[in-house]
Amino acid sequence: MKQKIFLIIFIFIASNIFPQGFKVNASGEKTFNFTDRGKRNQASFYSTTPLEDITGLTNDINGKVTLKVEDIKSIRGDFSVSVSSIKTGIDLRDEHLREENWLNADKYPDIKFSIKEISNVKQIADNRFQVEFSGDFTLRGITKRISGNATITYLVESEQTKQRAPGDLLGVQAKFNVRLADFGVNNNIVGQKVAEVVEVSVNMVGSSAL
């Protein structure tokens, strides 16, 4: 019985002390570039209200992530998305989205995110981890700390991965919520057609060779 308790305590301590990382041949610090010339990386927002569901999507993501391959928690990176590239499926609504009382694309052309912390790392498959992250999110020139969940997958370069980009690939799927009022967006001005809190999803792939 004592042995079992010691074993459980040991596993708990070991999992918290020893860093969790990708099991690949590469080691040390690696940088992944998420600026995809093929524009296949995407960030989207989803708003749901009784009146209408709105999805906005952009493929114009720029950013880089640096990490120590053997330690997921070492991930740091910066991303930006151009406001003018967000499409909602209705041209007129896209124009409204760029207006001054909404995202004000002229004054604040980019939405930015900077990863500051990775926590609660859980391995869910080979070289695939589920993590919680927090970072500085900048919208309309206002920066707030937000947190969310992400799944990070590492694929070593192969004939298959070369179809997407050269080098090793890092796939990132992330989700977090943004309260519009925190960033000076008043959703009441359009009769609450947009939710107070929108869900942001990011699906992107970075390459170590770009």
Binding site: Q42, T55, L57, G89, I90, R128, Q160, Q163
Partner: peptide
Amino acid sequence: TKVLVDNTSELDKELGIKN
């Protein structure tokens, strides 16, 4: 006049992402 459709490839699935 536009709708979103799933365009997730096998490689995307391996990378754990949707498109």
